[in-house]
Design a protein around this nucleic acid. Sequence first.
DNA 1: CTGACTTTGGGAAACGCTTTCCAAGATGCG
DNA 2: CGCATCTTGGAAAGCGTTTCCCAAAGTCAG
Lengths: 371, 371
Amino acid sequence: MNPVKKKSKKKASNRRHPSVSIRDVAKRANVSIATVSRAVNGITSVDPELAKRVWKAVEEVGYVPNPQARALVSGRSHMLGLIVSEITNPFFPELVQEFENLAVAQGYEVMIGSTNYDPARTESLIRRMLQRNVDGVAVMTFGIEEDLVKKLVEGEFPLVFVDAGPKLPNIRVLKVNYGEGIREAVQHLAALGHRSIAFISGPLRLRSAMARRDAFSNSMNELGLTAPAGHIVEGDHTMEGGMAAIEQILSHAELPTAVVCSNDMTAIGVFHGLHRTTNTVPSDISVVGFDDIHLAQFMLPPLTTVQMSCKLLASAAVQALRAGIEPDHPRAAQKEWHIPTHLVVRQSSTFPRGTLPALRRKAAADPANAK
Amino acid sequence: MNPVKKKSKKKASNRRHPSVSIRDVAKRANVSIATVSRAVNGITSVDPELAKRVWKAVEEVGYVPNPQARALVSGRSHMLGLIVSEITNPFFPELVQEFENLAVAQGYEVMIGSTNYDPARTESLIRRMLQRNVDGVAVMTFGIEEDLVKKLVEGEFPLVFVDAGPKLPNIRVLKVNYGEGIREAVQHLAALGHRSIAFISGPLRLRSAMARRDAFSNSMNELGLTAPAGHIVEGDHTMEGGMAAIEQILSHAELPTAVVCSNDMTAIGVFHGLHRTTNTVPSDISVVGFDDIHLAQFMLPPLTTVQMSCKLLASAAVQALRAGIEPDHPRAAQKEWHIPTHLVVRQSSTFPRGTLPALRRKAAADPANAK
DNA sequence: CTGACTTTGGGAAACGCTTTCCAAGATGCG
DNA sequence: CGCATCTTGGAAAGCGTTTCCCAAAGTCAG
């Protein structure tokens, strides 16, 4: 109420913490704030001697640029959006981890979100990312819904998709070579003697799920094999889905001797379903997964699976994003990145049941015998 | 070069996207920007009639406040930091998911990071969060390193810890009642007839790991049992660690009939190690986990484990954080939140080996028999 | 009817930074 | 030697908000 003490000192900032600003550096180095900004941002037109003085001052006063202010004026937040389908599917945390490491190492922060296959959720997620002004978004849901694309696409906002995406200058695509790894898987099984191989797909709304299923069919055809309709069933990339799917397959007239799954979680569900129906993996049925999550090697038996390197995926995603964001990035023109996949053979695949005992025994002896 | 066309129109903003500012709303509603701000932020001193007009204008021009600008001036970013130890441990994604859902529903964004038990990484993580000006941080690493605390603690920055933390006005603690669930586990095993029960702890630097181990010892003592030194070994909360630990235990003179693990990942590693040494779960050795991750019920056999609800944990964390951030939060004074734990019995625990066959058979018949 | 309060709403000053525009000094060329 | 071209560094204009301070208008008692 006292009208006298109106003018408080201009200090006493609102921020909670460091609160040493560019001005302090300028004062310390005895230059203008513009010079400090230029030096810090590595603009070449500043005298090296002077720049050194500035950097010294930065050290001394412990200056850290305020990202909010920086974003406000420059329009770039140095944040990357990362959208995955389901953070609780172990494949994604591995991907997130790699992505984050890379992004941070390159001066970006990352905003993560999972869609849970829910369009509404997805939309709100995108809205939030746009609102927070991320510099670009990597949509690693392995098969995005179209409307979602449209939402994001307006403008020349940098975007990275997996597998497929509209051909636009701002959009980069990570092409995963599913065929490669899946062919290896099918050939591996065929070489062991399997002729009746089933496939459990992911949710077919997802492009990638479709691609994997087609890769399977193609690989079968190449070998002159075909899977009857009842041997190709749709799962949903969860353990529950895998369990349901294998039960459906088991109810089919002809029992397959092997089953290939669209991801590792599905395979785990299959293990479980098979166990419940007193089938044994791999002696009754061989199982092959996809993704090669860390967990795969700890399954009982360890899971034969197709590896899709999330290191590679993450690194490509970050690179592609930066290519879209930074005006003169070396790879600015590159629109596609290619990701290979490869089979990793473990112990969930072996000769089909009913094969000569000699062979069977040999195979059984091979795996577990520590101690 | 032409000195004439200096003055470009003041439009053509730097931002990539929406770019409709508070000023546009003000113009549309024919009020000052101050009024718009007040209306939007629900300051009561604005006439309801006018407020309605403002809101209408907001709708019409599609205004969305810019969080950066907002943060810059208000000092609050509406971002919450969430630090976990290892995003690749399936327990944490489940927690992250819940946390994020709650935070977003309450108007906050979340910045996630995992320490991987690496102090350097942890420090950089915290630095980044502070720099990005998060409003508060939940440290859900279940036993934080002390120096990390110090780094954060200066100032009255809102912090939430699990299990333990300095008693300071800005710090809130989520107290997990490990004793409860672990006692249930031990009693469950004892009731089945187990007398020789081993324990695999987490990394003992972690407070929570210590707490779980102590809870185990106490529960054993209560029943007049003791575990020999060689039966209590230190793991590291990973599958690899669990495998190594069980091998160490198996090398001990006296073989336990059951083993309790400090978390589910450890238990999975134990399953694997036991399998490699041709022991069967649960007929040779019963195994009990901790956390009750989703995966637990899909193990073979499904894992008996102590449930620690990440829903509860997440909700408490968000609540506690808000209590520290918002000046007049109803629970501002509450410093502790309590989280219960409970045993979930599945099929990885049964009577000890060597118990009368009759009992054994009965137990074996009980679980799996679908089809 | 007047003076003292209370509401309301507007103008303008931050917030911390980037970037444009200019001036001044240095350099080159005819 | 004078004019044009480069470098460098400083001043200042924003970026989109919130919030402080006042003025205007309304309310009420004396």
